[in-house]
Amino acid sequence: MRRHQIALLAAAVALVTLPYWMSGVYYINVASQILFFAVFALGLNIIAGYGGLVSLGHAALFGISAYVVGYLLQHGFGHASAILGALLAGLAATAVYAALALRATGIGFIMITLALGEILWGLAYRWISVTNGDNGINLHGRPQPFGIDINSATAFYYATLIVFVAAVAAVAVFVRSPLGAALMGTRDQPRRMNALGYHVWAIRFWACMFSGLLTSVAGILFVYYTQFISPQTLALTSSAEVLLMVIAGGAGTLLGPIVGAGLVVVVKSVVSGFIERWNFLLGAIFVAIVILMPEGLVPGTVRLWRRAWQGKNGTSP
């Protein structure tokens, strides 16, 4: 346990002091992106990792919150009501999304979420009177929580960091809780869970709602970061990107989606600096990870590390 705490402390110090040792607005912005995409990935991981329900339309839920912020700001509402409205809209959309998708599990769930995601993408793209179509919606400025200006890269980084830490803490608490254990039970043995007195559908539904909440929060951070929202954010590639974060890092682990978000954002930023072929690489990484390291980087590394460590000490498991 002590090694855990040291690692946690080191990570906390590194994150808090990041703007001081990572010079340059560009790098601080990359760090902010990693953090809010990590919140998104943590949200998807709730159902995909702990619930065994792989959603391929999550970018739509992410995008809805972002659009609502943009739309409300454009129509003269303040930041507080825009954020509140986005959270409520995100949760309402998630409720409908979950109610439809949870008609099925497994492959059926993938298909329905994919179809729902594509439909919402199509809506964003074609419902021009509301979404401004392909041109998207521009934002002007960020909110000032408690009177603090977060327009600078560093200030926005800290605001994102606070939300990120809260999200990680919420997921950590949830995973250890009875409801978290029940969710993992429905992933492994849904039939048995039902026979033990659990309402499997309701557990999955509430897990979706928690996932949707984190996704909405991430969507709000995203739109305030980029100051822009367009249908591209809701596209299947965006849903696939966040799923790749979860799977590459390690689905069903706390650290996995965070590592995955870091990996995907860094690779994407680096690669797009040289070539435009990000989608090809995204697809290739996807195929490679699924075939070669299906458990993801974090569990894979932990397994290798444990084996090496135990080998050295000569202890058996």
Partner: peptide, 19 residues
């Protein structure tokens, strides 16, 4: 492994599109 197969087809679709 149906879930993995679906994800592989998804990955290939991105590669084809970019290609």
């Amino acid at each position: 492994q149906q879930m993995a197969q679906v994800l592989v087809t998804l990955g290939i679709s991105f590669m084809v599109a970019d290609f």
